[in-house]
Simulated assay, not measured.
Amino acid sequence: MSLRKMLRAGVLLLAVAPLGACALANVASEPAPDLYVLTAPSPQAPDGTANAAAQIVVETFSAPAAVDTARIVFQPSPNEIKYYAGARWSDRAPRMIAALAVETLHNTGRFPAAIGSGSSARMDLALTGDIRQFAATRPAREGFGQAGTEVRVMFFARLLRASDRSIVAARAFSASVPSSSGKMVDIVAAYDAALGQVLSELALWTLEEGAKAFPKRAGS
């Protein structure tokens, strides 16, 4: 390399280096967001309900792009989506919900096996569906909760035969829970309660419909 080219390369390196250093400094100075997790409920099946004979895989539910994120959704109106600043879920919402759904099925103590998608195990049923709403909202009616904020969770679930993907049953599930204040911890608590209601109903419905599709053999 000629002396002139070496000098030119050195000048470029000196010009770029401060920019890189500034970018790294900006990244390091950004405050880390607060991370939040939700919990799986432990629904109790009615007395006399038989244990499931079918093994089930829970697939990650589809979701609109605005919900398919780790950011926590605030929907002030039907036509507007915002996110809470400085707060995140520990994972993308659909992945987090799928993991909690598997845990909820386990917590019933009624399924021989319940796993998440990605396993090579042969299963009898697949639980899938759509996340229609997973957001904190401002209801139109006055006086709903101290902060005027409620969390709404809405799924449309499908139970499929794993062998041929035929639909065994389908149903919508929804819940609304008011937040006791505008603090993030109380809004997350409302998310936890609303999702817990939906997952509990979903698990018991899956148990009932799965028993119809795969009745337990006598003596088993």
Results as ranks from 00 to 15, higher is better:
Leu38Ser: 10
Ala63Asn: 10
Ala63His: 01
Phe61Glu: 04
Thr39Lys: 08
Pro33Trp: 03
Val67Trp: 10
Ala45Gly: 09
Ala53Lys: 14
Asp34Thr: 07
Asp68Leu: 04
Glu30Leu: 07
Asp47Lys: 11
Pro46Ser: 13
Pro33Tyr: 02
Ala52Cys: 14
Thr49Cys: 05
Ser42Val: 08
Ala66Asn: 10
Ala54Leu: 10
Glu59Ile: 00
Asp68Cys: 00
Pro43Asp: 08
Glu30Phe: 00
Ser62Ile: 05
Thr39Met: 12
Gln44Trp: 07
Thr60Gly: 09
Pro41Trp: 00
Ile56Pro: 15
Ala32Ile: 07
Gln44Asp: 12
Leu38Val: 11
Ala40Gly: 03
Val57Pro: 00
Ala65Ser: 13
Phe61Asn: 05
Ala65Cys: 01
Pro64Cys: 01
Glu59Thr: 00
Gly48His: 09
Asp47Pro: 14
Ala52Tyr: 15
Thr39Ser: 15
Ala54Glu: 06
Ser62Asn: 15
Ala65Gly: 05
Ile56Lys: 03
Pro43Met: 01
Ala66Cys: 03
Phe61Gln: 11
Thr49Met: 09
Ala53Gln: 15
Ala54Lys: 04
Asp47Glu: 13
Asp47Tyr: 10
Pro46Ile: 04
Ala63Pro: 09
Tyr36Ser: 09
Pro31Asn: 06
Ser62Met: 06
Leu35His: 04
Ala66Val: 04
Ala50Gln: 13
Ala52Pro: 14
Ser62Lys: 12
Thr39Cys: 08
Ala40Met: 02
Ala32Asp: 13
Asn51Glu: 11
Thr49Gln: 10
Leu35Pro: 01
Ala54Trp: 03
Ser42His: 14
Ala53Ser: 15
Pro46Met: 10
Tyr36Arg: 04
Pro33Ser: 02
Glu30Arg: 05
Val67Met: 08
Thr49His: 06
Asp68Glu: 03
Thr69Asn: 01
Glu59His: 05
Pro64Glu: 09
Pro31Gln: 05
Ala65His: 08
Ser42Leu: 06
Asp68Thr: 00
Leu38Asn: 14
Val58Asn: 02
Pro33Cys: 02
Pro46Arg: 05
